[in-house]
């Protein structure tokens, strides 16, 4: 089983979001970067599938050299080798094009990634990669089990889930509870240093969207505290201010 896991390098979930250079650039000052939480689920499931079925896991990231600590973390968690496409991940189409190019030449049985990145929340890359490769793409995947050439998948739909069956290969966008996040152990961290990380030039520079500038939402105007003994005041606010009653 050859598994490709695509990971994003994104600000930690507790990061303060702000912008610099006339709101055209994300302010990285003091920000910690992590493997995208959804990608981390995909990687964790890949490690479990490898334990169960054998095979190899390749981690792939489209990013500049600053993403290498994030890639090393994926190697420490259990990827066998890694590929970094040396470019800014400018838009979903650009990233999908790079992933599809790598996949065309390596014949993976399974291409896993998160359902969406937590920076731009597009949820587009898995579908684009599937379409570029002419493969099914399934997302958001909550459970994934493989028996021979066939996968059984549960996919979240609004207000429920559906159970699917599909033959390999395919692309999956993952979310919980597909697996528990894995914390790298000492042995993993040591071995990650010597695992191969190949750097590849981008295959195409086509993009279809560009960010003109960023904006922040207006600040909240402040909280009104209501005494539990005067609940009627809250009902008035819900009716006259929030207008939900």
């Amino acid at each position: 089983m050859k598994i490709l896991v695509c990971i994003t390098h994104v600000p930690d979930t507790t990061s303060k979001i702000s912008f610099i250079e006339q709101n055209t650039k994300f302010d990285q000052n003091g920000v910690q970067f992590i493997i995208g939480p959804y990608d981390d689920y995909a990687l964790a499931r890949a490690v479990e599938l490898k334990e169960q079925l054998g095979g190899t896991i390749t981690a792939l990231n489209v990013g500049t050299s600053e993403t290498e600590p994030t890639i090393r973390k994926a190697l420490a968690i259990g990827a066998d080798d890694a590929i970094r496409i040396d470019a800014e991940p400018t838009d979903a189409f650009f990233v999908a094009n790079q992933i599809a190019h790598i996949a065309r030449t390596n014949a993976y049985d399974l291409i896993l990634m998160g359902r969406e990145s937590i920076d731009f929340n597009g949820g587009q890359v898995h579908g684009m990669v599937g379409a570029l490769l002419g493969m099914p793409s399934i997302s958001p995947v909550m459970t994934l089990d493989i028996d021979g050439n066939i996968a059984k998948i549960s996919r979240e739909i609004e207000g429920g889930k559906e159970l699917l069956e599909v033959a390999l290969p395919f692309v999956a966008g993952c979310q919980e509870p597909i697996a528990e996040w894995k914390i790298p152990n000492m042995r993993g961290i040591m071995s990650a240093r010597s695992k191969p990380l190949v750097i590849v030039a981008p295959f195409s520079d086509l993009v279809r969207t560009t960010v003109n500038h960023f904006e922040l939402p207006p600040a909240k105007s402040g909280i009104k505290m209501i005494d539990a003994e005067h609940i009627g005041e809250l009902v008035d606010l819900l009716r006259n201010e929030a207008k939900v009653l």
């Binding site: 920076d119 560009t210 500038h213």
Partner: peptide, 15 residues
């Protein structure tokens, strides 16, 4: 909306 609602991006579509 980006960063899970914490910001917005004014985005240009070229195709």
């Amino acid at each position: 909306s980006i960063y899970t609602g914490k910001a917005f991006a004014i985005t240009e579509l070229s195709a």
